[in-house]
């Protein structure tokens, strides 16, 4: 399924779409459900970033990637508990580990490091609106709904204020 993931509902839909199947398929790994849900969420976040930044890399299909990333994460977790063998066998039969190498964060340049510090000094609401608008590419209407603002104008001016504040923090 192709998805732009540009609304909260689309994110929730995709999250729930494969959740039950993932939990069922990973039940054999001797991790409790809470741990498997946690891993599913982390895998979903990686998938989300891939869709947003390198949509071409998800050519094999969203589910393939989600499950591949999830299995890699399970392997990492089980490694620390010395239960690696069964997972490797399983992976050898199903999905090649190499196909789902985890993305590595790029080193940030000095300006980006300043931006990150600036973001840390902003309010949670400011950080959220900047993420939703400039990273997730939500529309103003969607942000208004997501953040329960009174009107689109409130959202627009809030967004502008937050960006201005961030610029000031970066320059200072």
């Amino acid at each position: 399924m192709k998805s732009e993931l540009s609304t909260d509902r689309e994110i929730e839909h995709l999250y729930l779409e494969f959740r039950a199947e993932f939990l069922r398929n990973t039940a054999k790994y001797n991790l409790d459900e809470e741990q498997r849900v946690d891993i599913y969420q982390d895998a979903f976040i990686v998938l989300y970033e891939l869709i947003k930044t390198h949509p071409d890399k998800v050519e094999k299909g969203v589910k393939n990637y989600l499950f591949g990333i999830g299995r890699n994460m399970i392997l990492d977790r089980i490694k620390s508990e010395i239960k690696e063998r069964k997972v490797k066998e399983d992976m050898a039969q199903n999905v090649p580990i190499e196909a789902f190498e985890m993305p590595v964060d790029q080193q940030m340049n000095p300006l980006q490091k300043k931006m990150q510090k600036g973001l840390e000094q902003l309010s949670a609401g400011c950080r959220e609106i900047l993420v939703l608008f400039y990273f997730r590419q939500y529309s103003i209407a969607e942000i208004q709904t997501s953040m329960n603002h009174r009107s689109e104008n409130v959202t627009k001016s809030h967004k502008s204020r937050c960006l201005k504040k961030l610029k000031e923090l970066v320059k200072s």
Binding site: Q112, Q116, L130, V131, Y134, R136
Partner: peptide, 12 residues
């Protein structure tokens, strides 16, 4: 353009 990576981390 530079804001992308810091926001990516914030989005997590």
């Amino acid at each position: 353009t530079n804001l992308h990576d810091p926001l990516l981390r914030e989005n997590r």
